[in-house]
């Protein structure tokens, strides 16, 4: 109970400071929109082509914009040595990690929920035809991205090349999640049923989330405290 409260306190603190300053949220949302616009020059936005690559396009946008949010997650605590204070506080590292991950999760979901309608309007897609299946894909894949991103954000926070190293590390690690999410999202956004062959991607998402969340929770103490 105490652990849960600590986790939620950290998440609440992060969300509150983000909502008040909107420093990474503004950047991530506008960045997502810019990429969506840029993509219309890369492919013919009216053609059937866009239908086939809709999932890939969306998740690339989420991953790129997400990296901005994730980068700030721990970097925000560097000023005034807040990170040291957090580590020294009675909150266990894993609760700190889960709290931050939860805050990032909510922020990424906000970015996604803004980007999806923009995508729908710009590319003339009615993306919400299967909301009950699209929601679990969004939630599971976003959580997978968040876990990887948050633990590596903690890992790279003190590096000189933080802005460069974080994407270098997280994108290759995120590939399983992105692959699954892209495939499923393409099907769902186009209003198609998911064939039996592709059910495996759901299992992959769940498996990825479970494995990497437990790995991250186990190892975060080592990363932050040593």
């Amino acid at each position: 109970m105490r652990y849960l409260r600590q986790t939620l306190t950290i998440a609440g603190k992060d969300l509150r400071s983000e909502i008040r300053t909107k420093e990474s949220l503004n950047a991530a949302v506008s960045f997502a929109v810019v990429i969506l616009v840029l993509f219309s020059f890369a492919v013919d936005p009216s053609a059937d082509q866009i239908k086939e690559m809709s999932g890939g396009l969306l998740w690339l946008v989420f991953a790129f914009a997400g990296a901005l949010v994730l980068n700030r997650s721990f970097a925000r605590e560097l000023g005034n040595d807040c990170l040291d204070a957090l580590v020294a506080s009675p909150v266990p590292s894993s609760a700190l990690f889960l709290g931050k991950a939860l805050a990032n999760f909510v922020l990424l979901l906000i970015v996604e929920l803004v980007a999806l309608p923009v995508f729908g309007v710009l590319y003339n897609m009615s993306w919400a035809r299967q909301p009950l299946l699209l929601a679990p894909v969004l939630l599971l894949a976003t959580w997978g991205m968040t876990v990887i991103g948050t633990i590596f954000s903690a890992l790279t926070v003190n590096l000189r090349l933080r802005e460069l190293m974080l994407p270098m590390l997280i994108y290759p690690m995120m590939i399983p999640v992105l692959m699954a999410a892209m495939r499923l999202t393409t099907l769902l956004v186009n209003g198609e049923a998911i064939p039996a062959d592709d059910q495996i991607w759901f299992r992959l998402l769940v498996g990825f989330d479970v494995i990497f969340t437990s790995l991250a929770v186990t190892l975060v103490d080592v990363v932050l405290v040593g």
């Binding site: 633990i151 890992l155 790279t156 590096l159 190892l219 990363v223 040593g226």
Partner: peptide, 19 residues
Amino acid sequence: MLRRAVDDPTTRARHSAVL
């Protein structure tokens, strides 16, 4: 690459072990 970006030997060892 990560190893090159960290100067302190123990931090480098810890972080690269996690990765």
